[in-house]
Amino acid sequence: MFAQFLTPSYLPFACAFVVMIGIGLIEAVGFGLGHLDLDGDVGTEAHGGMLDWLGLGGELPILIWLTSLLGCFTLAGVAIQQAATSLTGAPLTWGLASGGALLAGALLNTLAANGLARIMPGFETTVISTDELLRQRGTILEGTARRGSPARAKIVDRHGQAHFVMVEPHDDGDAIGAGETALLVRRQGKLFFAMPDRDRLLRSM
């Protein structure tokens, strides 16, 4: 069966299986590296339409969804080729089999993705928008943050997830050194502006 899986008729499904395993390994390693903050939100108007049909309406992480789709595509393709071999004595051409597997895999993945979204509620409760990092304290990791010269800072959100952002002081004359904490007060694109956490009034906030 393994040798058959490497023949041209099965090659698209073999490739999809390899990619699926690779993404799965990336996801597994990623769980130990903290939260990767991707600044992109899907508008609510997109829900209830094509995204729901594809299984993305439940805010399932895109890599989990893609892994599921590749798995469904692979299973559908192998099933199609096995059925064709049983009926005609030979598998279909890879192009014809891939087209059928893509349609069948997409339909199957809708069910699989919706099921995964229901049993993985933790993803919905730990994902936050970038703006929610405002009024949070971050620690400068390296270098000194000055106006025009941002430094990398670490912020831990209310779920205990770590976020890494670039920070500049809010006031022109301030400088925030490595190891110091600062309160994030505003954002401009991906750049945050913070006030050094030095006076008692600021620490009470």
Rank of each mutant, 00 (worst) to 15 (best):
A153N: 10
L107K: 04
G143A: 10
I176S: 04
E27S: 05
S86D: 07
G48M: 08
E142L: 05
S149H: 13
D197C: 10
I140Q: 09
L25T: 03
D131M: 01
D41F: 10
T110P: 01
D172P: 02
N114K: 14
A112F: 14
C72L: 06
A84D: 04
P91D: 05
V156G: 02
A3K: 12
R200K: 13
F164S: 00
P169S: 01
A178I: 08
P121I: 10
N114V: 04
T110N: 12
D41I: 13
S204R: 13
G57W: 03
P91H: 08
S86Q: 11
S129R: 15
G143I: 10
G100V: 08
N114Q: 12
M166D: 11
K190D: 10
T139Q: 14
L96F: 09
F192Y: 11
A162W: 02
L133T: 06
G71Q: 03
I21K: 07
L201T: 08
M1S: 11
E180D: 12
G189Y: 07
T130S: 13
S86A: 15
G24N: 02
P91N: 07
L103Q: 01
T93P: 01
A106Q: 05
E27Q: 11
L191F: 05
E124S: 15
F73S: 10
W65Q: 14
P150A: 07
G40M: 08
T144K: 12
I176W: 02
L54A: 15
L6D: 01
G115H: 04
A79V: 13
L183V: 03
T126A: 13
I128Q: 14
M20H: 05
F73L: 15
L25E: 02
P196Q: 06
G189N: 05
M166N: 12
R203Q: 14
S86T: 10
R158I: 03
I21T: 09
G22V: 14
A3G: 06
D172W: 01
L108S: 13
S68A: 15
V29T: 00
M120V: 12
A84Q: 04
I176V: 13
A151E: 02
R198A: 09
G99H: 06
M205A: 09
F31D: 01
G160H: 08
A113K: 10
G24A: 00
G58F: 12
D39K: 09
H163A: 09
V185G: 00
G177D: 14
L191M: 13
G99F: 12
D197H: 11
L51Y: 10
A76P: 08
K154F: 00
M20W: 09
